[in-house]
Design a protein around this nucleic acid. Structure first.
Lengths: 233, 233
DNA sequence: TAATAGCTGATTGTCTGACAAATAACCGTA
DNA sequence: TACGGTTATTTGTCAGACAATCAGCTATTA
């Protein structure tokens, strides 16, 4: 006796599928039943099964290989965020704000968790930035790596996978407009500042430093590029 | 000359579709071409089109109505987060950490943006919590509303839609294990504390207060429920 | 024995056609 | 004008067919 059951077959399949996923305690990398098996298990047509599977694949929950089978993806949920970002993309200020909120929190968390090896790695990025101060393209890439590695330090898969497309997306956007050398030097200073707080295991200080950094990026961004108005959505 | 171009029709359709979406400057609520039109526009089979549309619907980017047509969803991207959460669900500690990071940042942002009307509304929630101190179910709901309203205050669609399933999910989880009256009284104290910082427009203080609050929830959560080990993913 | 080449069955990718179900728009009647 | 019914459109679902790809097995060969 299932509720009102005014749902479509597809969404029913999805729910059932998710239930199996959870109750089956599947891990990333696990193989899941074939389409034919699912068709029989769920008593629906292949198209319905495939539509659900396609959706899950497009958002990065599963991986499908012709001639082999279907597996739980082992780097979950990065794609879905990218997709969503593409749609919300027209509203850059909102994304910037989101990045600020998330990354400031990440900095605090990472400051607590950073190991000596992590600190060394971050230091390495800063050195590289100084070396490539005049090559904008390379510089931006290293800048990006620095930020992503901070997410990496937290060890939180969910946050890292959310941060990744967000930062990448905004950076790609930023690449369009050339950044002044002054802006690049300021970035190095900010990163150094953040690293100092990390070394001192100062979570509050680290988040404050990150906040300042992003604030400056945002101001430069708005100043140096023609930023259209956010859509009212 | 496209790279190796070993892409499937489906993903090509997705890309093309997203391109149309962006370049067409569609707004939420807009009607998009019918399946038949897309079939002709893209020169592919209906199944391929449908698989992409199903995926987009599943993650909440579009809405489809039988006999009517397909529209850009007007409350974007809430579903996708829920889906992902369901998959990562087995790893509750990771979600808690994510919530802490995001909500601490949200509190700072909301503290700056809160209007007098917002403050009054938050105050109202606290009053209600006191009134329903002994009704756990109702209490938890109001507690939840308080947190969600803070996300609302920031006016950031992206953050709000991310927060919503995250908070709801963790709260639902929490409902399973009864919370002591002491825990509920502490929640009221924390909320009051947060509100005070909001009134003072003290962003740093607000985020600190929110951090303490979530920290306590987490400790109570771990203490009062049997929390299995996080999966190594 | 070990390595390689080829075969085979299984699995996903794609298309087509068909029908059901629901809805918006139109039309005629009161 | 308001109401009820018809119709064309659109999405939902199924079934069947074939192509493309791959893992695993088998037989051949050095």
């Amino acid at each position: 006796m299932n509720k009102v059951s005014k749902t479509t077959v597809t969404s029913a399949v999805l729910e059932e599928f998710m239930r199996i996923l959870i109750e089956g305690h599947v891990k990333p990398g696990d193989k899941i039943p074939t389409e034919q098996e699912l068709v029989q298990m769920l008593g629906v047509g292949r198209s319905s099964v495939r539509e659900v599977l396609s959706a899950l694949e497009l958002i990065g929950i599963i991986d499908r290989r012709v001639g082999d089978g279907t597996y739980i993806s082992d780097n979950l949920n990065c794609k879905a965020f990218s997709l969503i970002l593409t749609v919300v993309a027209q509203n850059t200020p909102v994304l910037f704000e989101a990045r600020k909120v998330i990354e400031v929190g990440l900095a605090a968390l990472a400051a607590e968790k950073a190991t000596p090896a992590d600190l060394q790695k971050l230091e390495g990025y800063i050195v590289q930035m100084k070396e490539h101060l005049d090559e904008q393209q390379t510089f931006i890439q290293i800048d990006l790596d620095f930020h992503l590695y901070i997410a990496e330090i937290t060890g939180n898969v969910f946050l890292r996978n959310m941060m990744f497309p967000l930062t990448t997306f905004l950076n790609a956007w930023r690449e369009k407009s050339a950044r002044s050398k002054a802006a690049r030097e300021m970035a190095i200073a900010c990163h150094t500042n953040i690293l100092e707080k990390f070394k001192a295991k100062d979570a509050v200080g680290a988040s404050a430093a990150m906040f300042d950094h992003l604030q400056q990026i945002q101001e430069f961004f708005i100043k140096e590029s023609d930023c259209e108005n956010p859509l009212a959505q």
